[in-house]
Design a protein around this nucleic acid. Structure first.
Lengths: 353, 353
DNA sequence: TTGTAGGCGTTATCAG
DNA sequence: CTGATAACGCCTACAA
């Protein structure tokens, strides 16, 4: 019978880089198990729709041959790849580490593979990354995306999509509820004698920065404190250093900053100018990123549970994939104040220019 | 003609989660451009083997339809996915950030997508991650792998593979040449009056830790210094703290540590015990990871150019993919001392228990 | 230069 | 419960 030739016949286009031996297919299994390839497929993908003994036959043959499904061949008819895409603004930023880890862990738990990309904080590269991933993945997770809502909707229309760290209408989002953490921070500052609170903002277009500032204002109003907003040019260590002078002259005795990196730069510059932290100025960051406790004093910060965000986001995409629709597509996760050394009691009168 | 129905006829198995509109195929392009699908394929993948005007016709139609290749359909006949796999020991460790960034940048530059996984520092998960990725990628990069050489050879036999941070026989590797940086560090310590140097080792099975220790010994011998090896139980901040007592009692006035995290923990504990760094003990880390300069004093460290490692590794896999064979499969990249505040002159006599 | 035809490995439909 | 057969979208000899 020429049937024997089915799987191995013809010239093989696919040239594995080194090993000459092509991987076994369901046809090969079919041959050794003595059943039709389609039965092999069934036995392997939906056991239960096949007799017990056929199943065993197939499984044994598969094991013996060291069979592994070809994900591409499978993806073609099903359209499913068992892969999730994750795009973060900047892989270099440790803040995102826990998100990656979180999504990875639940993805793997559900037998999904993760595909990761970095947008280099640019709308353009973010978009290309998304476009490039789109055909590969079953669903996509965007972390702190900078593309506009329209683009996000566009993507969300094509595949299940979840956004972390930003709220977009009609799109499933996971966002830290910063007000709780901010409230805790402000209360802690109040009892330590502070009366004027500064907020060093992040990038102008940052959704989260706006959120912070709203929260700070609200909390200050409630506690009858004065609040003042400072601008940083970039959310980096240097950006933090450059805003130091302004912070001092603002008259605020305590400042919250858009993120921990900014806080660290600010603290470094203040200390270089012999301003004692926290005695003269208290500093509170955001995120509790890796390294926030390396400083002296260690940084007080509002922690966002990024690991949880990552896990939840992955869970939500997977739900979306299974056809679930989220009536309230916004998932809030709690933030909390991590009290360390960079904030505390305001010592006596502080009189600087 | 029923030809119009070619692409849209029949029931569509592939059900996109939401949008009803299926992505356009080369058949669709063929219809609007008025040419055969195969011509479309050629025009798109190998322009030049097609007339200029057909090409333009096809490109316009493709653009108009917003066509994107289906990577799976392409992978099936060609066996190529334009995807590179990267497995790092621990995504949570900032040391690997630059590697990710490096590989990502050259991968993207060559129109390759990156697939990232974390091995959680476990041989088992590392292996499953590799296995899981293998069918998806054209090539694989392993960073500080913990699996044994046999496994690595196995994988290298299946697809192009490059290892970072470890040397494996007959496998293309990119490793930092630590001796240069260590030499600089030891010389700097010598001129600052140090006579006994400690090395706080990392995990016993770590290839790099052994390498460090060899280098430290050699450099100390050469400079006629005494060297002593200390063991840490874990390469973490806490591990660093726990080894502090031993460091002090060892009599070394300067120590190098397996990595920066260990150095930071060690420094924190010493400072907590009122040991002044660097006046009483100098500390030198390895890697120059993110945050190494957040400490007070900022950490002196031997920097490995991880970004370069990542880029080179990606370049090498790509070469391998193109059939190049590396006669000397080990690529060494230079390390250098980054002199900061945690190391320096030994002040007068130090007499601690 | 372009069209035709067959195959890549898997799943789904439809008879048997 | 199982076998044949037709997609899935793309690529590439081969023929025109």
């Amino acid at each position: 019978m020429s049937e024997v030739e089915i799987a191995s016949g013809a010239t093989r286009i696919n040239k594995p880089a080194r090993s000459a031996k092509p991987s076994p297919t369901i046809y090969d299994i079919g041959k050794v198990a003595g059943v039709n390839p389609s039965t092999v497929s069934r036995a392997l993908s939906k056991p239960g729709r096949v007799s017990v003994k056929t199943r065993k036959l197939v499984e044994d043959a598969a094991a013996q041959l060291g069979y592994q499904v070809n994900p591409f061949a499978r993806a073609l008819p099903t359209g499913r790849t068992s892969t999730l895409g994750l795009i973060v603004a900047d892989i270099t930023n440790p803040i995102y580490l826990d998100i990656v880890r979180g999504t990875e862990s639940t993805a793997l738990g559900q037998d999904y593979t993760l595909m990761l990309a970095d947008s280099a904080e640019t709308t353009q590269t973010e978009l290309t990354a998304a476009r490039r991933m789109m055909p590969f993945v079953d669903g996509l997770i965007l972390v702190s995306p900078c593309m506009d809502d329209t683009r996000i909707h566009e993507l969300a229309g094509e595949k299940p999509l979840v956004v972390i760290n930003r709220e977009v209408n009609d799109v499933t989002c996971v966002v830290p509820e910063v007000n709780k953490g901010i409230g805790e921070a402000i209360r802690s500052l109040v009892v330590n004698g502070h009366r004027k609170i500064g907020y060093v903002a992040g990038p102008p277009q940052s959704w989260m920065s706006k959120r912070h500032w709203d929260g700070v204002q609200a909390a200050c109003d409630w506690s009858k404190l004065e609040s003042v907003r400072l601008e940083s040019d970039r959310p980096t260590v240097d950006g933090g250093r450059r805003v130091a002078r302004e912070v001092v002259s603002s008259g605020a005795t305590a400042v919250l900053t858009y993120n921990d990196i900014l806080a660290i730069g600010l603290m470094q510059e203040l200390q270089a100018a012999s301003v004692v932290v926290p005695d003269e100025i208290s500093i509170v960051g955001f995120d509790d990123m890796f390294g926030a406790d390396f400083t002296t004093p260690p940084l007080t910060t509002v922690r966002s549970p990024m690991l949880t965000c990552g896990k939840e986001a992955a869970r939500l995409v997977l739900n979306l994939l299974n056809g679930e629709v989220h009536s309230t597509p916004i998932l809030h996760v709690d933030t909390e104040l991590v009290l360390r050394g960079s904030s505390g009691r305001l010592s006596s009168g502080r009189l600087l220019t």
